[in-house]
Design a protein around this nucleic acid. Structure first.
Lengths: 171, 171
DNA sequence: GACGATACGGAACGCACGCCCCGGTTGGCA
DNA sequence: TGCCAACCGGGGCGTGCGTTCCGTATCGTC
């Protein structure tokens, strides 16, 4: 690969990282190109599609999340809640995480599966109420990320979600 | 107003109600027109803008929600939770509610204000933890609606949110 | 230092959508 | 029943965005 090509590829990636993080997947590709100081055509020389560019920016981070969810931590309940906390922290800082786990992809499916595993163990340990399904948990997580983007206090939100997930207190 | 005009106006409103409810504010206006069996021009003869049509469909419902939030119910805590429950029920059935309270409008602001009032009273009665702000509550509600659209169990979700909102249990 | 391959920039295309306009039609009053 | 105003349908315009194409500039080799 030519030197200028490599340089431009990096400039595009840097711009994409910044803009996807601040505005999410909806930033026009032209804006990314302009911010990188290149033409749109150049972006497409390095990434076949906008999707591909987006995944180049987010895949590693999502992958890390999946692995941290798949790795067996100590206490099952704490593991689930810690994971949700990590998710919340990351999503509070970078808007693209929510998009990355919403857009259909193999990675997204793996994340959901890993979440299911965490949930199952937490429920088996009695740390989470038994009537929560994986689908519920995934939906709850997406709602949590949405709340974050609406300006909710991340720490407070996490407390609400974790305390709400714990065994019910109804008679 | 001519009879056929009134008839078409109703057909448009009916189609809009159905499609906004099932697909949200993002349905193309042409689709609404086609579903009503009229041309797009006819829609614009009765409603100056897509926004106006949307509000014609949702305003009454949102207004009812605002009033039910502004009316002083019995127990402050129960009033807040009942309102969130009503919100969840409505949003689970009709997708447009979330859009209606997200798009900037005077009604949206009144809803937020009413929510603030409910929160304040619930906190004064000790039914909700004191460190929740109105902004947090609004964000939490939007997240809840998002979770609903992702397929979460409405009843379960409501339990999680209400139990999470109650006073913290940490040492 | 010249030449071929490679990469660049940006104009242009296709598409979807909100919105407008106009020729034709239809309703209801005289 | 005839006439005119009101109304209809749908084609068309402007915009924004993802994507492609091509003439031109640049890199790296001989």
């Amino acid at each position: 690969m030519r030197a200028d090509a490599a340089r431009n590829r990096e400039k595009v990636l840097a711009a994409a990282r910044e803009l996807f993080a601040s505005k999410g997947i909806d930033v026009p590709l032209d804006e990314i190109a302009a911010h990188a100081g290149v033409g749109p055509g150049t972006v497409y020389r390095h990434f076949p599609t906008k999707q591909a560019l987006f995944q180049a920016v987010t895949d590693a981070r999502v992958s890390a999340m999946v692995e941290s969810a798949a790795a067996p931590a100590g206490d099952p309940g704490a593991a689930l809640f810690a994971f949700l906390g990590r998710m919340a922290d990351e999503a509070a800082a970078k808007r693209d995480l929510s998009d990355a786990i919403t857009v259909p992809s193999e990675l997204r499916d793996r994340l959901h599966a890993a979440l299911g595993g965490l949930l199952e163990r937490a429920q088996a340990a009695g740390a989470v109420r038994a009537d929560v399904t994986t689908k519920d948990l995934v939906a709850l997580m997406k709602g949590m990320l949405q709340s974050l983007h609406e300006g909710a206090n991340p720490a407070l939100l996490l407390e609400i979600v974790t305390s709400g997930l714990q065994s019910s207190r109804k008679p």
